[in-house]
């Protein structure tokens, strides 16, 4: 589904991604871990099409289409979704208004008819329940005055409504209590299917108890230093990132 080849990217003139290779097949869940500042969010943003990040080399294909050639909104319409590490507060725009616009933009892109208010409301109610989000929050300005947990659940809620084919979750688990974590994980697991793929960026192995990944990648200094199965997450938990960093020289030369 997703093919990332030798991806390089810069932020404000500084090279952050230094050659990422990653293949994600439909039906798989990949976890990306790594120390602070290693480039995890940069990768997530580049995949979602944030123009603040400049791609300086490499390729990204989704279902055979060149993703880098598309603007963020077209990628979204093609099925990419990013749950933000730091969801943005937007005063004056309610979540429900904007989500309806987003959902209809996608439907239009696919040649489907736009949803009317009633159908939309039905979907919204059902999905809000799924993530245990107070539906009243949806009539408030996007994320404005939301608690950290509410913001993260709002991301998962939007994901549930938009039903992406490739969902990228950037530290959606950080700072959540165990109940909220279970809700978030439940939302993701519900989305899992043979036609979809999920990339979970996280710091903590804890989330992976609830969302069991097929693959774990460790990102160090803009490169994937190590890849493995779900047991790699446990090993990291025990040995720390320095253990991978020490090995990364070998991995790099063997690549």
């Amino acid at each position: 589904m997703l093919e990332v080849r030798n991806l390089h990217a810069r932020v404000e003139g500084q090279e952050i991604l230094k050659g990422i290779n990653l293949t994600v097949n439909a039906g798989e869940v990949h976890s990306i871990m790594g120390p602070n500042g290693s480039g995890k969010s940069t990768l997530a943003n580049v995949l979602a099409g944030n123009e603040a990040y400049e791609v300086t080399g490499g390729e990204v294909c989704m279902d055979g289409k060149d993703l880098l050639d598309m603007s963020a909104d077209v990628r979204a319409c093609e099925g990419v979704f990013l749950a933000f590490q730091y969801p943005v507060e937007i005063p004056g725009v309610t979540t429900s208004y904007f989500l309806k616009a987003a959902l209809n933009a996608r439907r239009k892109h696919r040649g489907q008819e736009e949803l009317d208010a009633m159908d939309f409301l039905k979907i919204v109610k059902e999905k809000a329940k799924l993530v245990d989000l107070d539906a009243r929050l949806l009539n408030r300005a996007i994320n404005e005055g939301f608690s950290g947990g509410e913001k993260k659940r709002n991301e998962i809620f939007q994901m549930a409504v938009l039903e992406p084919t490739l969902a990228i979750l950037d530290e959606t688990d950080s700072g959540l209590d165990i109940d909220a974590l279970k809700i978030v994980a439940g939302g993701v697991n519900k989305l899992r299917s043979k036609d979809r793929a999920v990339i979970v960026v996280t710091h903590y192995q804890r989330l992976l108890d609830y969302i069991v990944p097929d693959f774990v990648h460790v990102l160090v200094d803009g490169r994937i230093a190590k890849s493995g199965g779900k047991e790699l997450a446990l090993e990291l938990e025990n040995k720390g990132y320095s253990w991978v960093a020490d090995h990364s020289a070998e991995t790099a030369t063997s690549a």
Partner: peptide, 13 residues
């Protein structure tokens, strides 16, 4: 621009 990207990442042109 952060708000712009947020909205665009959901599908708004």
């Amino acid at each position: 621009s952060d708000a712009m990207f947020y909205l665009q990442s959901r599908g708004l042109c």
